[in-house]
Design a protein around this nucleic acid. Structure first.
Lengths: 136, 136
DNA sequence: ATGTATGCAAAACATTTGCACCTGG
DNA sequence: CCAGGTGCAAATGTTTTGCATACAT
């Protein structure tokens, strides 16, 4: 299975917790999940994996470039599989659902703004908060 | 003094802690400060104000539109006086210094992106992370 | 075998809250 | 005087860590 390769390539031992967590991230209905979400999903599938391990594994995955971590307003961090493509987020303040978008014009202007300020941009995050279609 | 008016207009009693905290926000070298920063500044000026009060007052100030609260990557929230004008942020990942900017083209595109997705935008935050001039 | 991962419980943070006391209008 | 504000300590919610045990290679 391709998951093993993913992990090995990242220099991580192929362990059951890591595989399970990776599977959950791949099969989650919502692409953007919190550590707690992952933990609950593990419990639901009768896995004996501690919350501490979930945090440790997600942190390792982030360092390995397997997932991306975001800090929305909610207080807890959310993770999503990193498919390599950059995008920004629309976050519903009612149902917490997250949609992704990507706008070349904005990306370009950001780069220009950073340059103009003498900043060496390493990263950026743009989140639009509001009510999604269903919550209005 | 204009601070009293600020507070009264917000329906807040003019108390010593509130005045002191407002003064600190106005006189801070760095416009963007954490609750802890404010608390330390109070200690430095020999004020007997608890950290809980700092949080309470800052939260009230936010509700009253006196300050804005931001969640950068750092884990703690930072506050800045709200002068009414919207702007986004350039955050130095080394020295934590924050610069402000505002770009009409980006603002406009954001609005369009939200509309296109059927989102009713209530708020948005754009943060560019990187190394500031001095830290490169 | 052996170095790395894990589970559990405890610690560490940032922030909030309950409650008795104090204070501004 | 008295509603509202404050200080302190304890509670909360999230994330991290120490350590003895279990597991992958």
């Amino acid at each position: 299975m391709t998951d093993n390769i993913h992990l090995k390539k990242a220099g991580l031992k192929v362990t059951l917790p890591r595989l399970k967590i990776l599977t959950i991230l791949e099969q989650a209905k919502e692409r953007h999940v919190s550590a707690e979400d992952v933990y609950r999903a593990l419990l639901a599938s009768k896995e004996e994996i501690g919350l501490a391990t979930v945090y440790r594994v997600l942190t390792q995955f982030e360092a390995a470039g397997i997932v991306k971590k975001h800090h929305f307003e909610s207080g807890q961090s959310v993770f999503e599989l990193d498919d390599g493509g950059h995008h920004d987020h629309l976050v519903c303040i009612q149902c917490s659902q997250v949609e992704e978008f990507m706008d070349q014009a904005i990306e370009k202007r950001q780069q220009e703004v950073a340059e103009q300020a003498g900043f060496l941009m390493t990263d950026h995050s743009l989140n639009i908060y509001g009510l999604c279609k269903r919550c209005q």
